[in-house]
């Protein structure tokens, strides 16, 4: 059994790295949402921020959870966001492509 306290700086550094990467993806997604010219390229930028950014933030927060149950909950949250984000983006794109009675 190794001493876990010696690992703390390593885990903290990893956490900082992961959360910084996640925040960068959120930043990139928002810039894309604001600056890209049409709906489908904006949707493309958005899904990167959703899936990857949130996933990296979840992994970065994971060492700070109070017990294992919360860790599992966080991972399940990420999986749900992945599935829902992919499905939702697909539905929105299809709806926009077909017009569905609204101006494009």
């Amino acid at each position: 059994m190794i001493d876990l306290t010696t690992l703390t700086p390593l885990i903290n550094g990893l956490s900082v790295l992961l959360i910084s990467a996640g925040a960068f993806f959120f930043l990139a997604g928002t810039v894309g949402l604001l600056r890209l010219p049409d709906l489908h390229s904006r949707l493309h930028a958005l899904t990167k921020a959703d899936n990857l950014g949130l996933g990296l933030v979840v992994l970065g927060v994971l060492p700070r959870v109070p017990d294992v149950l919360y860790g599992i909950k966080l991972l399940l949250l990420w999986i749900m966001v992945l599935v829902a984000g992919a499905t939702g983006a697909h539905l929105i794109a299809k709806r926009a492509l077909r017009g569905e009675g609204e101006p494009r």
Binding site: R42, A49, V57, V58, G85, R95
Partner: peptide
Amino acid sequence: PSPADRMMAAQLLGSSGIGILLL
């Protein structure tokens, strides 16, 4: 400009809200 734009922006808001809450 279109409702789809608004909806997906609201989706991004939800995701960053999740991130903020976790942090």
